[in-house]
């Protein structure tokens, strides 16, 4: 399943829950409660808030733990031992890419920097979705470690605004299936 589709579904669910809370309160807003009902509602709201606090706290800790272990960014100050290494330099408004023929199912290390201003190095899969990105920044090298699973033509697009030809700053590379590596 495409990762972005999962995120979209989770987002809709989260926004939907917020909307349901508002719809419920709005539907009840026009019916004033007598003092006894108001007191009961007040006590319920305090209990519900405590339960929500605990639920959100556990959810937040769980997601943070799961999403940060292993840390999603590779070590930046040690060799990554990838079988394939690609040097990438962003310029206004072209990409210098040292290799444009890569192999699937073997890790690739992209070493990304820029010669002038900030650029965004994003890799688009053949289906048009981003698979990974980092910033290309003058004076720094950001390292990506990624293993392509799907052969095809991938497109690099600049995702950090860098001047008038920003949207035309693209490049391509091929990923061949493992058996095609000869």
């Amino acid at each position: 399943m495409v990762f972005q589709n999962v995120i979209w579904a989770i987002t809709l669910a989260g926004m939907g829950l917020v909307a349901l809370g508002f719809i419920y309160a709005i539907a009840q807003a026009g019916k004033p409660a007598d003092p006894a009902e108001a007191e009961r509602a007040h006590r319920t709201s305090i209990s519900l808030r405590r339960a929500l606090f605990v639920a959100l706290l556990l959810l937040g800790i769980g997601i943070a733990w799961a999403s940060l272990r292993p840390f999603p960014i590779p070590p930046q100050h040690q060799p990554l031992q990838a079988a394939q290494v690609v040097e990438v330099v962003g310029h206004q408004w072209t990409w210098d890419v040292s290799q444009t023929h890569l192999r699937a199912d073997e890790p690739v290390e992209f070493r990304v920097t820029a010669s002038d201003v900030n650029h965004g190095f994003a890799i688009y899969a053949p289906d048009g979705r981003i698979v990974i990105q980092t910033q290309a920044m003058p004076g720094f090298t950001n390292k990506i470690l990624y293993t392509f699973r799907t052969p095809g033509t991938y497109r690099i697009m600049c995702l950090e605004y860098c001047g008038v030809a920003h949207n035309g700053m693209t490049a391509e590379f091929d990923v061949a299936a493992r058996e095609d590596k000869s």
Partner: peptide
Amino acid sequence: YAAGFPVFLVTAYGVLTNIHRSGLRW
């Protein structure tokens, strides 16, 4: 993540409890 707690559980929740069964004038 943490910044969401005050918004959801205090301000938004507080507004919802304030309008709930209030006879709000729309």
